[in-house]
Computed example of a mutant assay.
Amino acid sequence: MVDVQGTVTDGFEPVRDAFAENFARRGERGAAVTVYRDGRKVADLWGGTKDADAAPDDTGAAPWAPGTAQIVRSATKGVAAAVLLLLHQRGQVDLDAPVGTYWPEFKANGKERVLVRHLLSHRAGLPVLDAPLTPAEAVDGVSGPRAVAAQAPAWEPGTAHGYHAQTYSWLLGELVHRITGRTIGTWVAGEIARPLAADLWIGLPEAERDRAGRVAPVEPPAAPATPGLRVRPKQSVSAAYDDPDSLTRRAFAAITPLADENDPAYRAAELPASAGIATADGLARFYASLIGDVEGGRRLFAPATLTLARTEESVGPDRVLVVNTRFGLGYMLHGAASPLLAPGSFGHPGRGGSLAFADPESGIAFGYVTNGLQKNVTADPRAQALVRAVGKALAG
C-alpha cells in the first residue's frame, strides 16, 4: 500500500480515501491533489514515486514530495486563457477585435475576420499546420507564430469549433507578445504566479531547473499518441486519429516527431498549449483566485470576467475531437466529454490525467497532477474519482 501524505480538513476525508484508492485500484504511480474551498485549502495530498517507470511502492524510487511539480500538458491552456482575459479586464485587448489588429501578419490567407475570442473558443479554424514543426522549431519562439500566421483556415472562422491542440501555443503566445511586449511565460510569472505565490510556470525558469528533483519525469505517450476522450459508441476518436488525413491526426501532429517532455529544453519552452509545469497546489490556488479571494493572495477575475470565462462560446460536434465538446473563452465547460464538479464549473484537463478547475457556486478550486499516463479518456478515472469525492464531501 502507498503511504498517502498530507492533510484534509474535517469533512473532506472522502478525498483522501479516493486518492488512496487510485494507487490501490486505478494504476496511479505518483500524484498529488489539492482542493480549496472559498479560498482556503481543505485538502492537500501526495503519494507514490516521482519515477514514472517505477512501482509506486518501490522503496528504491524517489518518493513524491511536497512541492513536486509536473508537466500538466493541456491543463496549461486554462492558465494561458487567463492572460488574455486579464488583459481584456485591464482594457488592453478587445475580445471582439480582429487578431490582425494586434498582429498584422496574421491577416494572411483569409484570416482578416478571425477575432480574438475565436482563438480562445477554438473557432479560428487553425488546428492544423500544412507543414508540421519539428520539436526544435516548436520552441524557438519564431517558427510557430510564423507558421500559424501563414496558415489558411481549415473552415470559415467563427462558423464551427475544433480543438486547437498544439497551435493554441503560438496563437495565444504571439498575441500576448504583440499586445504586451512580454512573452506569455514572463507575463504569467509576474502577474499571476508571483503575486499568488503559486508554483506554476509556462517555461520553467533556470532556478527551478537547477533544483534537483523539483519536476517529476512524466511517462511519455506512445507514438502515435491518442487524443484520449471519452467517446460514445460509434464515435471513435482513435479511429479518426488513425487516419493520417484527418483533422484529428493533423492537429495532434502539429509538432512532429513527438517532443521529449522530460528534456530540460522542452520544460523551459513557453508553449501555453501543452508544456506548463505546476504543482497540484499551484493549479488549485490559481483557480481559487479566479473565483474569489485566496489566503495569502488576491482575486484575479472581476465578476464580469468570470462570467466571460464560463459563458458557452462553442458547443456540439468538435471537428478535431469528434465528440461533442463545450468551451467558454479558453476553458472547457462541464459536459459529457469532460465532466467537472457541476454545471457551472470551468477548467481544463491535460492528456494523461492532470485536471484543474473551479466551481464558483460551491467555492471549490481543484488541482490534480500525475506522472502516470492513462490513454483513451479525458475523463480520467483517477481524476474523476477525486472529483466525485469532492462532491461527496460537499454533500456531507
Rank of each mutant, 00 (worst) to 15 (best):
333 L>W: 02
310 R>D: 01
130 D>H: 14
80 A>N: 04
20 A>P: 01
349 P>Y: 02
312 E>V: 14
230 R>N: 10
135 P>C: 11
219 E>P: 09
164 H>F: 07
376 N>H: 00
42 V>G: 03
28 E>F: 08
368 Y>V: 07
171 L>Q: 15
258 L>Q: 15
65 A>T: 15
3 D>M: 07
360 P>R: 10
162 G>D: 02
83 V>N: 02
269 A>L: 12
299 R>F: 05
371 N>Y: 03
8 V>I: 09
103 W>Y: 06
62 A>K: 10
274 S>T: 14
289 S>L: 11
66 P>T: 05
289 S>W: 04
106 F>N: 09
244 P>N: 12
42 V>Y: 10
167 T>I: 11
71 I>P: 07
278 A>G: 01
340 L>W: 07
167 T>H: 02
48 G>Q: 02
143 S>C: 10
331 Y>A: 02
63 P>M: 03
350 G>L: 09
102 Y>R: 07
343 P>R: 13
361 E>W: 08
100 G>R: 15
197 A>Q: 14
61 A>T: 05
203 G>L: 10
245 D>Q: 15
8 V>Y: 06
391 G>D: 06
78 G>M: 03
26 R>M: 10
293 D>F: 12
11 G>C: 04
344 G>N: 10
224 P>N: 13
308 L>Q: 04
160 A>V: 03
299 R>G: 11
102 Y>V: 09
2 V>C: 00
259 A>Q: 14
305 T>W: 13
21 E>F: 03
250 R>V: 01
210 D>H: 14
295 E>F: 12
332 M>C: 08
283 L>H: 03
238 S>Y: 07
306 L>I: 03
159 T>G: 11
60 G>I: 05
130 D>K: 15
3 D>G: 03
276 G>R: 02
356 A>D: 03
294 V>D: 08
234 K>T: 01
1 M>R: 04
290 L>M: 13
395 A>Y: 05
284 A>N: 08
198 A>K: 12
61 A>K: 10
326 R>N: 01
88 H>S: 14
7 T>W: 11
251 A>C: 13
190 G>D: 15
215 V>S: 05
376 N>D: 13
187 W>F: 03
206 E>Y: 01
210 D>W: 11
310 R>L: 09
70 Q>R: 02
54 A>S: 10
296 G>F: 06
107 K>N: 13
62 A>V: 13
343 P>Y: 04
309 A>T: 08
171 L>A: 11
